[in-house]
Simulated scan of single mutants.
Amino acid sequence: MRIVSGRSGSPSITASGTFTGQVLQDPVITDRADVKINTVLFTPCSRTYWHHHEHGQILQVFRGQGYVCGGDGVPRLIGEGDTVWIEPGERHWHGGTQESLLGHTAITLGGTEWLEEVSEEEYAAAAVTTGALDAPGAS
């Protein structure tokens, strides 16, 4: 058994390389090969690159609103209290909406393979597809 207490008090890590925009991470469990747990805060418009996980991923949203887009290419709106299961090997991305932060706990099972950046067109289409209130031109 292992109990991991809340934040250590150390500064959050600024994620880079496989993220667009400002993304902050707080490691929870990162010393295992089979599971990694991080709390992640996406500022508005920030997001991951396309990627997939060897044995899947669980996202538990604790703050704000965001998008998750899977292998079917259909973005979905997620918000506080939502839990997302992403199948092993499923190509996907996730991040904040145009006007909202997204905070989630990411439980990653096995390795992660990072792919290409989510294009501005793909990201902008998420607001239209989901009917998000913060979609450009929405009222």
Rank of each mutant, 00 (worst) to 15 (best):
M1W: 07
M1H: 10
I3L: 12
R7G: 15
R7Q: 09
S10L: 15
T14V: 14
T14D: 12
A15G: 08
A15I: 01
G17A: 01
G17V: 00
G21Q: 03
Q22A: 07
L24D: 11
Q25L: 14
P27K: 09
P27M: 04
V28I: 13
I29C: 06
D31N: 08
D31T: 09
R32T: 09
A33I: 08
V40Y: 03
L41V: 11
F42L: 02
S46E: 07
S46R: 02
S46D: 06
R47S: 05
T48I: 00
Y49F: 15
Y49V: 10
W50M: 01
W50V: 01
H51Q: 03
H52K: 14
I58H: 06
Q60I: 13
V61M: 02
R63L: 12
R63C: 09
R63T: 12
Q65V: 15
Q65D: 08
C69V: 02
V74Q: 15
P75H: 02
P75S: 03
L77M: 08
I78Y: 00
G79A: 12
E80I: 06
G81F: 01
W85M: 13
W85A: 09
I86G: 01
P88T: 09
R91V: 13
W93Y: 05
H94W: 03
G95M: 05
G96P: 05
T97M: 01
E99P: 03
L102V: 01
T105F: 06
T108G: 02
T108N: 08
T108H: 04
L109I: 13
G111D: 10
G111M: 00
T112D: 00
E113Y: 08
L115K: 09
L115Y: 03
E116M: 04
E116R: 14
E117S: 09
V118P: 03
E121G: 04
E121T: 10
A124H: 12
A124S: 12
A127Y: 11
A127D: 10
A127K: 02
A127F: 15
T130I: 03
G131V: 00
L133F: 13
A138E: 04
S139N: 09
S139V: 13
